[in-house]
Amino acid sequence: MAWRCSGCSNAELISNLYRAQLITASRVRDAMLGVDRAHYCPENRRDEAYTDSPVPIGYSATISAPHMHASACESLLPVLGQDNGEERRILDIGSGSGYLTHVLANLNSKGKVVGVDHIQPLVDLAIHNMQKSASGRTLLDSDQVEIVRADGRKGYAAGGPYDAIHVGAAAVELHQDLIDQLKAPGRLFIPVEDKGGWGEQYIWVVDKGADGKVVKKKTMGVRYVPLCDAPA
């Protein structure tokens, strides 16, 4: 989609994605308009900031393509309320550059978002990137956003339970710790490696109902970096 959704500015990129219906919710569009993607791309890849494509950020990690971030946000919207005062808690695993953590905070202005990464330099990078904008600094200073180092496969129980959990790297399984840290109701969005052995990955959307019943749904095929151990 990069060829038709690229822009010369963040506003143009998001407008093109909305026009192409890769963003369909105006609330998600507005949240993404409020976060300049250039603040989260490396200086030497700044010319790729406004393309609909992933960008490497070091440590074998990437900032995902904007249309994938939009898809994740729209999947989680049903458990985020109407953003008119509800205090929701969101866990962003594999927070990487910090971009989606910031977008999720815009969708959850009355609640809290915890970003988790297992690589300390990426934790530091995400905080640094958020500090490039006034809104990012406010979110950090108010503790509406917290970014910590932890093993995302185990979630981050200290900040939970969560209304929504987003995982930005491919897991080898649907980790039970993450499901356990969901509120009831709550939703988990996670890419998982397929058991078929062909290297495919699929997004799984896991819903925990108000009665605690868990429903798992396999959706679209994707390509994410793996959710794994930190490099030695």
Rank of each mutant, 00 (worst) to 15 (best):
L188K: 05
K110M: 08
S135P: 07
G98D: 07
Q82C: 12
R89T: 00
D151E: 09
H102P: 04
L100M: 14
L80E: 00
D83L: 07
Q131P: 11
D177K: 03
D163L: 03
S97M: 08
V192L: 06
D163H: 07
F189G: 03
G96N: 04
H118I: 14
L139Y: 11
L174M: 12
G111P: 04
V192P: 01
V114M: 08
Q144G: 06
R137I: 12
Q176Y: 10
V116G: 04
I127S: 11
D177C: 08
G152P: 07
Q82R: 13
I179R: 02
S97T: 13
P185A: 07
H128Q: 15
D177P: 09
H102C: 10
L91C: 12
G168C: 06
H128D: 12
S142W: 06
A171F: 07
N108F: 00
G81Q: 04
D143S: 13
I127P: 05
V123N: 05
N108E: 00
F189A: 04
L107W: 00
L122P: 02
A126P: 04
A171T: 06
L104F: 06
D141R: 13
G81M: 06
L91E: 01
Q176W: 05
T101G: 07
A126F: 09
G85N: 12
G98H: 01
N108H: 01
L122T: 02
Q144I: 01
F189M: 03
T101Q: 10
E193S: 14
P185C: 09
A170C: 11
W198N: 15
R153N: 09
E86L: 02
Y162C: 00
P191C: 08
G81T: 08
N106G: 15
Y99S: 02
E74R: 13
D117M: 06
N108K: 02
A164L: 00
H118G: 06
D92T: 10
G115W: 00
Y156L: 10
I147S: 03
Q176D: 14
C73I: 10
N106R: 13
T101N: 10
P78A: 08
I147M: 05
H118D: 09
R153Y: 08
V79G: 00
A169L: 07
V103K: 01
Y99E: 02
A171S: 11
N106C: 14
D163M: 03
Y162A: 00
K112P: 00
E74A: 06
D180L: 09
R149T: 09
G160Y: 06
V79P: 00
E87P: 01
I190D: 02
I190E: 01
M130L: 15
E146W: 07
Q120A: 15
H102W: 05
N106S: 13
E146S: 14
W198D: 15
L77K: 04
D117I: 08
D143E: 14
A105V: 10
L77A: 05
K110D: 11
D163V: 04
Y99G: 01
E193V: 14
S95V: 04
Q181D: 09
N108D: 01
A134C: 14
P78Y: 07
E193H: 14
E87I: 08
E173F: 14
S109W: 05
V145A: 03
K132T: 12
